[in-house]
Design a protein around this nucleic acid. Structure first.
Length: 800
DNA sequence: ATGTATGGGCTTTTT
DNA sequence: GCCCATACAT
């Protein structure tokens, strides 16, 4: 490989390769692997760990492809032993280990893996646990249960069942391994000072003494909060900050300055008191979580299932604490001489700890391997700048920590290799990336480990390449306009402009852009529909890769069923869906009973049912009111919003209604609307069948996360102007190496003053930069940065 | 000019 | 249910 250092071929060294986007990472892994094979190492003695199935498959494929052309003889031997190749994801590696040592772990070896979120298991456990906490009192009357019960009831009355569930569910992001992490209280050291200061200020002014005298009597934080809440309108704006103007109509006998000063002091006290209250609440949430987690564990045992976290934690536990660990490690050691880890920036500390354990024996020096002439090695490849799975608990800091630890362990037998070559993108794209990220990815000498330091790279491909800005003006329909601009630009490119692709003899050959060369990358899926619509209008073929399926969402299925029932009363199937839905919860027996009655259609038959009358009432309005109004009214009257209270679901329904409204304002007929939605469903299913058909000549739309590891001749990174909403969560889980901190503060204004929250916000921003980096480095020939832009330079624009 | 009330648009990423 | 832009009030 041109320009590649030969370091990676030194099979006696432990190596970390920092390989930026487009630097031929998979190639390097494959070359190293082949170097080992060529030196006579059997494939069964090499363990390669990746983080996705796709990456595992890619690595295997690359190894075989290189061998086939460059070393046909070795290829023949390997292909016979192909089933011995141990290339797998970390999860399937753990799975294998756990199955094998299931007996030692007291596990039923037939366990299955569940995604508790998808399967609704956690949701179930929470409902069950809450009920149990409330009922346990009667059964046992244990003291701690009594306390827990009181806390639960109190939290329920303040937040409601749903919100409480949501909050406790967030704590389930805590991984078992880090359960030792206790909630971290907010700093309340200023409370006394704030109290003193506020009381003094109130005492000094007659007006405040008269009106807020109650505050003087209170010292308990909860009471203070309550006292301020009752006079909130006089003190605070709707935004929750102290007023700079007294409310209208309030005649003050004091100056505005005096009002302002006292108000500010009460506000500070109010916030300090809130911190107290939040600390108490967090502990209660946590206690409830502990109870629910115990129930969750029981449930998993009962169902004989493990979740993804269990795979990692149990493996770690097996290797660290199990009494038979020596045998287990010995067995592993007997089989394994070399370990590869791919995409190392996506590891968390627990995964690193597992790798650590596996290689511990090698480092102790006296292993039997060296006596037998074998030098075991660890070969790690990754790129910190592409660490974008923080939400899945990947931790950028692992990369550097690992490098430092390996340096310590292996000394001169360790190599850290920084690759600077880029084989993917044209010169102008590389220039753009270098300039931009050298500026925005800087750590400085003493900067925190979660910041990444950008290292420039060199363009190896000789082609020029191009970066374009596609700016859409701010204004009405800006989002649709942007999508249309993108579609228009795609129209101009396809069949007209040139790109370069590698020909048979490895030379760059010029040819016209095809639809299939183009990818549209999005930060989030929210505005997907705009692009689908614009492309459809422009008659551009496309596929949404890994689409979540807006039209497959349960709430959309229901509201679509409603729409179809309104439009076409004889549509029994959609009426059936609607009745079965959570809005009506009609059972199959009831439906059967209704069907068996006399009448023309199913629709006629439900007339008798009181609960279902609401459908008919809305159907009657179809010629008098706009459809969108009818749908909205239906949601209100049936209290459908209560059923789909979750933000995402409610937003989905609103979006659906909005789409209907757009058609109506355009004057489309009922048939048109129905036809549109019918077509939508099929479109939705299509990508799922098509994901892996990379040859199909269609534009690919996907998220940046999905695009990781892929490359395209033409990349549109869209929605550049979308402001990234940071700091939304009142609960933050901060997973570190030793323990995990839980922070809780539902007040945004206070959060802005809490160091830990501030740091987490900065960490999130760093991850956004890395997402931007991943996005722009997917492009080979043309990178188009598109978005709504104004003088404020919001979203990703600010990085240019 | 500045602060406050109000209405409209929307609110991840996934092995 | 929350943020932001804008209209309105001081």
């Amino acid at each position: 490989m041109p320009g590649a250092s030969s370091n990676i071929f030194d099979i006696s060294k432990n190596i970390i390769v920092s390989a930026p986007a487009g630097s031929g990472k998979t190639e390097k892994l494959a070359r190293r692997y082949i170097a080992l094979l060529s030196a006579g190492v059997g494939p069964e003695r090499i363990l390669a760990i990746t983080f996705t199935e796709k990456a595992a498959a890619e690595m295997k494929e690359r190894i075989l492809r290189i061998l086939k052309t460059e070393n046909p003889e070795l290829y023949k031997t390997i292909i016979e032993k192909i089933f011995l190749m141990r290339i797998s994801t970390i999860h399937s590696f753990c799975l294998g280990l756990l199955k094998r040592f299931a007996f030692e772990l007291d596990l039923d070896p037939n366990f299955e893996i569940v995604d508790p979120k998808d399967s609704g298991l956690i949701e179930n456990v929470l409902s069950f646990s809450f009920t149990r906490i409330i009922e346990l009192k009667k059964e046992k009357g244990e003291d701690n249960m009594e306390v827990l019960r009181e806390h639960l009831l109190e939290l329920t009355s303040r937040y409601g069942w749903g919100k409480l569930k949501e909050t406790v569910e967030k704590l389930f992001a805590l991984r078992p391994a880090t359960l030792v992490g206790r909630p971290k209280p907010l700093d309340i050291s200023n409370f006394k000072k704030a109290l003193f200061s506020a009381v003094t200020a109130i005492k000094e002014l007659e007006y405040f003494r008269e009106n807020y005298g109650d505050l003087l009597k209170e010292e308990a934080p909860e009471k203070i909060i309550y006292a301020v809440d009752t006079v909130k309108d006089l003190l605070l704006t709707t935004g929750g900050i102290p007023r700079k103007q007294p409310p209208r109509g309030l005649k003050l006998k004091i100056t505005k300055e005096e009002y302002f000063t006292v108000n500010e002091k009460i506000f500070v006290l109010y916030n300090e008191a809130k911190r107290f209250a939040y600390n108490t609440e967090l502990n209660r949430f946590y206690d409830i979580f502990i109870f629910c987690n115990a129930e969750y564990k029981k449930k998993k045992k009962e169902l004989n299932v493990l979740d993804f976290n269990d795979l990692e934690y149990l493996t770690y536990d097996l290797l660290k604490n199990h009494e038979g660990v020596d045998n287990i490690l010995f067995a592993f050691d007997e089989q394994t001489d070399h370990i590869f880890v791919d995409e190392f920036q996506d590891t968390n500390f627990l995964q690193w700890a597992i790798i650590n354990k596996l290689t511990e024996e090698w480092r102790s020096g006296q292993g039997s391997k060296r006596e037998g002439g074998i030098t075991p090695t660890l070969f790690i490849v990754g790129d910190e700048k592409q660490s974008i799975f923080g939400f899945r608990s990947a931790n950028v800091e692992v990369f550097e920590t690992a490098a430092m630890e390996m340096q310590k362990w292996y000394g001169k037998d360790f190599i850290f290799q920084q690759v600077a070559e880029n084989y993917r993108s044209g010169i102008n794209i590389i220039d753009f990336v270098n300039r931009t990220f050298a500026r925005i990815m800087q750590r400085g000498r003493l900067g925190p480990k979660w910041r990444t330091q950008y290292e420039s790279f060199n363009a190896i491909r000789g082609i020029t390449g191009k970066v374009e800005l596609l700016e859409t003006k701010k204004g009405e329909n800006e989002n649709q306009n942007e999508a249309e601009n993108v579609a228009k630009r795609i129209g101009e490119l396809v069949g007209k402009e040139d790109i370069y692709v590698r020909g048979a003899d490895n030379r760059e050959v010029k040819r016209k852009v095809k639809q299939g060369d183009i990818a549209i990358l999005l930060r989030k899926r929210t505005h997907l529909a705009d692009f689908e619509e614009a492309l459809t209008k422009k008659k551009v073929d496309y596929v949404v890769v890994n689409g979540l399926g807006f039209y497959q969402q349960p709430e959309i299925i229901i509201i679509r069923a409603l729409l179809f029932s309104l439009l076409e009363p004889s549509d029994d199937y959609n009426l059936y869906l609607l009745l079965k839905s959570r809005i009506f919860s009609v059972t199959d027996e009831q439906i059967f009973e209704m069907i068996s009655r006399e009448g023309l259609t199913f629709y006629d038959k439900i007339k008798a049912n009181k609960k279902l009358k609401i459908i008919l009432e809305h159907a009657a309005l179809i010629n008098d009111l706009p459809l969108s109004h009818i749908l909205e009214s239906f949601m209100e009257k049936t209290e459908g919003w209560k059923i789909f209270w979750e933000k995402q679901r409610a937003a989905n329904i609103k979006k659906f209604i909005e789409i209907v409204q757009n058609f109506e304002t355009r004057g489309d007929s009922f048939q048109d609307i129905r036809a549109y939605f019918e077509a939508r469903v099929e479109k939705d299913e299509e990508p799922k069948a098509n994901v892996n058909t990379e040859d199909t000549d269609v534009v690919k739309i996907m998220t940046v996360h999905t695009a990781k590891g892929l490359e395209f001749p033409v990349v549109f990174f869209v929605r550049m102007g979308e402001e990234l909403r940071k700091d939304r969560d009142s609960i933050k889980i901060n997973e570190g190496r030793e323990s995990t901190g839980i922070l809780y503060c539902p007040d945004r204004k206070i959060r802005e003053q809490v160091d830990e929250f501030k740091e987490l916000a900065l960490k999130e921003e760093e991850e956004e930069k890395r997402i931007f980096y991943v996005a722009v480095t997917r492009a080979r020939d043309l990178l188009v940065l598109s978005g709504v832009r104004d003088e404020k330079n919001k979203g990703f624009w600010k990085y240019l």
